[in-house]
Every structure is written in structure tokens, then in C-alpha cells.
Simulated scan of single mutants.
Amino acid sequence: MSEKTIPGWLKQTLDLGPPLLFFVAYLYMRDETYAIGGTEYDGFIVAAGIFVPILLVSIAVLWMLTGKLSRMQVFTAVMVVVFGGLTVWMNDERFFKMKTTIVYAVFAGILGIGLLQGRSYLAWVMAEFLPMQDEGWMKLTRRLTGLFLALAVANEVIWRTMSTDAWVKIETFGFPIAMFLFLWLQILSLQRYIEEPVDQRE
């Protein structure tokens, strides 16, 4: 399947829609208990179970429209399926909450391995979209590795010490906003390393 481009608003809808729908489902179901197949599940467990197919449909639509998926999207989908499945199967919300820690830790680990090799795996994934000098990529990779580690630790602290309501809000809004602000600040601070795209007509 050849690669296609889609409007930015549509991609954002497909990326952000599933977690927002999970948030809405959780708010609606959090005070309820549901009997399914002779087992009682609280609202969080049911909302987590609903989130899995919603995410998979969103990713499938994105793949059909663009003809490609990033490695990060595929990995995140696998983690959601595994830990969402464990959450429902074991009837234990801790699996779904730990998923976030593991995803961030794995991202930090992958980037860290590249740094130990003197390479930026981030550049390998994103250089096509953001032309930048090697020094800039190495700096951004080191900083992003630190952010992923910090978010992994923060998630562990939050879900173990705070209420489920607080965790859901931070997971849905807090972490994405922190990531966006961090990347925005990094792009500003690394402007001198960003290269102008080469005109293919020259």
C-alpha cells in the first residue's frame, strides 16, 4: 500500500480520540459495577476494556488512510492490548495503570541504548520530518530519554499514591500536555541545529 497524507486535524482526531473516549467512558462508568459472565467488574475495568477495541479501530483507520504506521504506534497498540487484556482477565486495574510506566520506560531504554552506541534512534525515526544536525539530534535524544524516565517514575508514584480519578486525569491530559510543552521548548532551544529542507528542483 502506497503512503498517503491526510489532514492534520484528522490525524489528531485519530490519535487523541481513543484516550478522550476512555476518559468520557470512565467518568460515566466509574461509580457503577457491571456483572459480565458471572463476574463483577467496576467501571474502570469496563472502560479499559472498551478502550482496547476503540484504539485498534483508530489505528486501523489511520493505516487504511495513510498506508503506514509508526513503530511507536504499533508498540503502543501491542502494550494496550496486552495490559488491557490482563486488566479485564485478572479483574485488576493495576495492569492498565502499569502499562504507562512500561511504555515510557521502554522508550527511554531504546533511546538510551542508541546513546550508548553514539547514535540517535530518534533521528532515524524523525529526521524525514525534522531535518536537523547530528549534534541537535543527540541533544534532543538525551533530553527526551530523561523525560521518558521522569514520566515512567511519575506514573508509578501517581498510580500507587493517588486516587484512580487523579490518575485518569493525569494520564489523559497531564502527561500529553507535559510532552507537548517539552517538545515545543526543545524545538525552540535547538533552532540553531535545524536545517532548511533542500529544494528538490535545484
Rank of each mutant, 00 (worst) to 15 (best):
R94I: 10
M98E: 00
Q133V: 09
R142H: 13
Y34G: 06
A47S: 11
L20F: 08
E32I: 09
F51W: 06
F173Y: 10
G17C: 08
V52K: 02
D165H: 11
T141V: 07
G146W: 05
L188S: 09
I45G: 03
K99T: 04
L151M: 14
M90F: 11
T101A: 15
R142V: 02
P19T: 00
E3W: 09
P19M: 03
R143Q: 10
L149P: 04
W89Q: 04
W137C: 01
G114F: 00
V125E: 08
M98D: 03
Y121M: 14
P19I: 04
M138D: 02
T33D: 09
V157Y: 11
M132Q: 07
L188M: 14
R94W: 11
I45N: 00
V81M: 15
W124M: 12
Q191A: 10
S70T: 13
F148A: 04
A25N: 05
V57L: 13
S163P: 03
I36Q: 10
D134I: 08
V52G: 03
G37N: 08
L147P: 04
V153L: 14
F22V: 00
A77P: 02
A127I: 07
F23K: 03
T33M: 12
M98C: 07
F44P: 02
W89F: 11
V157C: 09
T76F: 15
D92R: 07
E40A: 12
F83G: 03
F175Q: 03
M29T: 06
D42R: 05
A178P: 06
V82S: 06
S58A: 15
F148V: 04
L183H: 06
T164H: 03
L149V: 13
V125I: 12
L149M: 12
M64R: 12
F83I: 09
Y193W: 12
